[in-house]
Computed example of a mutant assay.
Amino acid sequence: MTPRTTARDLLDEHGRTHADEAGIRLGNTPAPLYRLLTLCVLFSVPIQAGIAVAAARELHAAGMGTPRAMAAASWQDRVDALGRAHYRRYDESTATALGDGAELLLDRYRGDLRRLRAAADGDPDRIRELLQDVPRIGPVGADIFCREAQGVWPELRPAFDNRARATAAKLGLPTTPADLARLVPADDLPRFAAALVRAGLS
């Protein structure tokens, strides 16, 4: 089996991004970018991926899909939404982090992550650094954001984090981002990176 065939099989079997699973139609507009960031915050604690995705959906359903709405919601509203998604143990601290993060985005970027992108001036490493100013977003959360957002922010391409590259190595695929990117069309990079991570967990 050639590397390209393996990549196609991975896309067919595991090629669904977390954003898609959470019902986020990702585009270069403020609301979906913020919802992706919220999802990354929810992933930042040791909790099942399905629960984090469900919590992201519940927060959106409760009207907290923008930084302004998140900041305006009460702490208890956020806790209750997380609880409905069975996001337990970390619900109170995460509710605080989401409120603080929304305030930071409003103060620094007027609630628009495209302003963070502009502040990074096209530098992917700087984007990762600025993302980590958001409460609860560490290197792994920043990697998840970049992995998913590379479809709408081309300067992030190719984004394959350590988990994706570790799976690639186990499958006998190339392990550098540039070589992995050659295996699929550019539009499929987010799905391919997600597929590698999912395959590694399955």
Rank of each mutant, 00 (worst) to 15 (best):
Ala19Thr: 07
Leu10Phe: 02
Ala169Asn: 13
Ile51Asp: 07
Pro124Ala: 07
Asp107Pro: 09
Trp153Glu: 03
Ala142His: 13
Ala56Trp: 01
Leu33Ser: 08
Arg157His: 00
Asp12Lys: 14
Ala119Ser: 06
Ala119Pro: 03
Ala194Ile: 00
Pro177Asp: 10
Leu26Gln: 02
Ala169Trp: 05
Pro67Arg: 10
Ser93Glu: 13
Gly83Thr: 07
His86Pro: 11
Thr6Trp: 07
Val79Arg: 13
Tyr90Asp: 08
Pro30Trp: 02
His18Asn: 04
Thr17Arg: 03
Ala119Arg: 14
Thr2Ser: 15
Gly151Trp: 10
Thr38Asn: 11
Trp75Met: 12
Glu21Cys: 08
Leu11Ser: 06
Met70Asp: 06
Asp179Cys: 06
Asp80Tyr: 02
Leu33Thr: 00
Val152Gln: 13
Ile127Val: 11
Gly172His: 04
Cys40Asp: 03
Asp187Phe: 00
Ala55Trp: 12
Val79Thr: 14
Asp143Pro: 04
Asp179Thr: 01
Ala54His: 08
Arg8Ala: 14
Ala62Ile: 12
Gly122Asp: 08
Gln132Ser: 12
Ile137Cys: 09
Ala7Pro: 08
Val45Tyr: 11
Gln150Asn: 02
Gly122Gln: 09
Thr167Gly: 01
Ala97Val: 09
Glu148Leu: 01
Ala85Leu: 09
Leu98Phe: 06
Ala55Leu: 10
Leu156Ser: 01
Arg157Asp: 09
Glu129Met: 11
Pro30Tyr: 08
Pro174Tyr: 07
Leu104Val: 12
Ala52Leu: 12
Ala164His: 06
Ala120His: 10
Ser202Lys: 09
Arg16Thr: 09
Asp161Val: 03
Arg16Ser: 04
Gly83Ala: 14
Leu156Ile: 00
Ala159Cys: 06
Ala69Thr: 09
Pro185Gln: 08
Leu11Lys: 05
Pro30His: 00
Gly101Trp: 02
Ala149Arg: 02
Thr5His: 15
Ala164Gly: 06
Val53Met: 01
Gly65Glu: 14
Leu130Pro: 03
Gly63Lys: 01
Ala61Glu: 14
Ala62Pro: 00
Glu103Met: 15
Gln76Asn: 13
Val53Ser: 07
Ala54Met: 03
Phe43Leu: 15
His86Ile: 03
Gly83Ile: 07
Phe160Gln: 11
Ala61Arg: 15
Trp75Val: 10
Ala169Ser: 06
Ala72Tyr: 10
Ala118Trp: 12
Gly23Ala: 08
Thr5Phe: 09
Arg16Asn: 04
His60Tyr: 15
Thr29Ala: 13
Gly23Ile: 08
Ala169His: 13
Thr29Val: 10
Ala81Leu: 04
Pro67Ser: 10
Ala118Arg: 15
Arg114Pro: 01
Ser44Trp: 06
Val140Ser: 10
